[in-house]
Design a protein around this nucleic acid. Structure first.
Lengths: 106, 106
DNA sequence: TTGATTGTTTGATCACAATCGAACATTCGT
DNA sequence: ACGAATGTTCGATTGTGATCAAACAATCAA
């Protein structure tokens, strides 16, 4: 018997359950801001992790993506061996109006 | 000769020099959010530190006020033996539009 | 099936942030 | 001059966050 595969399942919290400090914390890191800014340039696009030119190693980047997921800023899904991520733009904007716009401006 | 007194001087950074991550970080702490919310209830009022009902001790609170000053969110001045603090509401709103409003809402 | 791709997890380190008690400084009242 | 009031600073502790290398897992391509 081949071991049953457990496809990675990413969490996707309801925005109503995301407290403000968690959202602030998620956007308080330069690397995560860079990720969100690049995503804002193509809001419809689903990004693989290696489409970003980031300083930290992949382990660290993986952690940053998880932080962004927990804050309800992005959502991710498995596609083949890739992890595709996209902004939850409308939902996040509805929960924290104006916050994403601040990220775009810098 | 009595030693010359050096009245405490609080910093007051220009808002243009405050980076977004610093502002986010400052607003990512529950205690500091509580301070800002209480100040938002009376935007014109100058608050002494002991007007807040906060959990941490006074040393910690003193540090939180400094963090808020560094982020350009509040300004402080010495009045007698008190340290009076108030929001830099218009300036901060001009630099980070909508951010303070998010704090008010929760 | 073998090896390369893509990301996650683990274990460890390092820096920084929050916290406290105690000592200190300044000012005010008496 | 003395003591209370109000914060600040110092030293130490504790916890959390960012980071990396290495091992692991799943998938795809040849």
């Amino acid at each position: 018997m081949t071991t049953t595969s457990t496809p990675k399942k990413y969490q996707r919290p309801k925005l109503a359950s995301v407290p403000l400090p968690l959202a602030m914390q998620a956007l308080a890191d330069p690397c995560r801001l860079a990720i969100v800014r690049q995503m804002l340039a193509q809001p419809e696009h689903e990004f693989a992790c290696n489409e970003f030119d980031l300083e930290p190693g992949k382990a660290t980047v993986s952690h940053h993506f998880e932080t962004l997921r927990e804050a309800g800023i992005i959502e991710s899904r498995v596609e083949g061996r890739k992890c595709l991520s996209a902004l939850r733009l409308e939902e996040f904007e509805a929960r924290f109006p104006g916050l994403i716009e601040l990220v775009r401006e810098g």
